[in-house]
């Protein structure tokens, strides 16, 4: 018997993996952006699970808009990444500390 709780648990696990991935990563910003996509997927899981178990279509509408905004966010983020690499010649998180001093 699949209940709402199983889907919510799956969403919670995916969300935590995304959070850990953002924190422990030191290589490059691309992996961090992929972890943001994982977080969005986890949140969408919760929306769709609630939408199915409450028989309310508003959750799926909301997921539609989240997908739109996430696509825009990925496009702008990658554009920022390209501009950053062009100026700094690196996308390593450790080296991008020019705001520090």
């Amino acid at each position: 018997m699949l209940t709402l709780q199983s889907y919510l648990t799956l969403g919670a696990i995916i969300f935590s993996i995304g959070v850990i991935g953002i924190v422990i990563n030191r290589k490059n910003i691309i992996i961090i952006m992929m972890c943001i996509e994982l977080l969005l997927i986890a949140v969408n899981f919760n929306f769709i699970a609630f939408s199915y178990f409450n028989q309310d279509l508003a959750g799926q509408i909301f997921v539609f808009f989240i997908l739109t905004v996430a696509a825009a966010e990925a496009a702008i983020g990658l554009a920022i990444l390209v501009a950053l690499y062009r100026n700094k010649k690196t996308i390593d998180v450790q080296e991008l500390n020019s705001l520090r001093n």
């Binding site: 709780q5 919510l8 648990t9 919670a12 696990i13 969300f15 935590s16 993996i17 959070v19 850990i20 924190v23 422990i24 990563n25 030191r26 290589k27 450790q94």
Partner: peptide, 25 residues
């Protein structure tokens, strides 16, 4: 590939998972 806070971050992440699952169930 992983920085020095990685073990602590994994620990915190496991706590987050445990809390979320506890609340859900």
């Amino acid at each position: 590939s992983f920085n020095s806070v990685a073990p602590f971050a994994v620990f915190i992440g496991l706590i987050i998972v445990a809390e979320l699952i506890t609340i859900i169930w």
